[in-house]
């Protein structure tokens, strides 16, 4: 018979990984002296901001049940495009705007091929990853675009109300995306398409349009991440974004959005990206060199995923099939 399921709270989703975040913070706070200070927290947020934005770009496509491997390349290209325009005398704000537009166009390219042409998303985004990376190298002749003026540096290195601008940007984007994914029909459709394209089609949803728009959004976010990165490090290297796609995937998976899509979300990814940033920061305080940091982070990610899988299995057993 139909059961009465009463408690509303039982189903409120607190991402389980929040406890992971708390655990990491507690461990580093207890074991290192410098970690639990306001300065270090601001420092961590500053370090995390670019990864957070890039990870959101990734998360949106993974929520769809797909992926965008070209995020790192888009970051590199938009960084150098914006940098070159500034060096050629374009006003800073126009250069930044056109950089973001470039990101949107690249996302549109991916999205068009995947949604309306029905190509495989791995093939499309892997190819565009290579194409976009080469483009960035070609237009710069492989050289890094050097330093910028204060106007542009404000984005990545300035501060406002005592907080780094970069942290404010990431926070603003987080709020916008949480709203978009959880409160709008677009967001609801995004989750549905990720859950099952067929069911979504049967419900009359224009699934192609959802896929297309999501890739554009992903391109825009990657573009923003690339521009802010150039501003922060005060130079635009044509390979600056390379490797970000993998950290972004890691943050997404740790945050509880699985490759199948249709569940998880922005908040989880925020936590996932923060965990990665904190691990880097904390391991640095322990005195580990970056290569060893990466190795350890890799192991920790595997551990987190194993715990998650076991937890799901346990829950499945409890609910019985």
């Amino acid at each position: 018979m139909v059961n009465l399921i009463n408690s509303k709270n039982k189903f409120k989703k607190v991402p389980g990984i929040l406890f992971g975040l708390i655990a990491v913070v507690v461990i580093f706070s207890v074991t290192t002296r410098y970690f639990f200070t306001l300065n270090n927290f601001i420092n961590i947020l500053e370090q995390a901001s670019i990864l957070v934005i890039a990870s959101f770009a990734m998360t949106l496509t993974i929520l769809l049940g797909k992926i965008d491997m070209s995020i790192g390349s888009i970051m590199s290209l938009t960084g150098v495009v914006t940098g070159l325009m500034i060096h050629n005398g374009m006003p800073v704000w126009i250069s930044v705007f056109l950089g973001v537009v470039a990101g949107a166009l690249l996302g549109m390219f991916n999205g068009y091929l995947i949604s309306y042409q029905g190509f495989d998303f791995w093939i499309v985004t892997f190819s565009s990853m290579g194409i976009i990376q080469s483009l960035a190298l070609v237009i710069t002749n492989g050289a890094t675009v050097p330093g910028f003026g204060n106007d542009f540096r404000f984005l990545g290195d300035g501060s406002l109300f005592g907080l780094p601008v970069i942290v404010l940007i990431a926070s603003g984007i987080t709020i916008l995306l949480v709203f978009l994914t959880l409160r709008t029909t677009f967001g609801s459709n995004l989750y549905s398409v990720g859950g099952s394209e067929q069911i979504s089609k049967y419900a009359g949803i224009n699934t192609e349009a959802i896929v297309f728009k999501t890739y554009i959004l992903s391109g825009i976010l990657a573009g923003i991440a690339g521009i802010v990165l150039a501003s922060k490090v005060n130079s635009a290297s044509p390979i600056a974004g390379s490797g970000y796609e993998f950290d972004a995937i890691a943050a997404t998976l740790i945050g509880g959005t699985p490759f199948e899509g249709g569940r998880g979300g922005i908040v989880g990814t925020l936590i996932g990206a923060l965990i990665i940033a904190i691990l880097m920061n904390g391991l640095n305080l322990y005195g580990f060199t970056p290569p060893i940091q990466f190795t350890l982070i890799g192991f920790i990610i595997v551990l987190i995923i194993i715990i998650d899988v076991l937890n799901e299995k346990y829950k499945a057993k409890k609910w019985g099939k």
Partner: peptide
């Protein structure tokens, strides 16, 4: 034709959510 990881209201109003 239900999405397992969405709640009941989201499934019932899929594609025709009140706006």
């Amino acid at each position: 034709n239900l999405l397992p990881f969405r709640d009941i209201a989201q499934n019932i109003f899929l594609g025709k959510e009140p706006r």
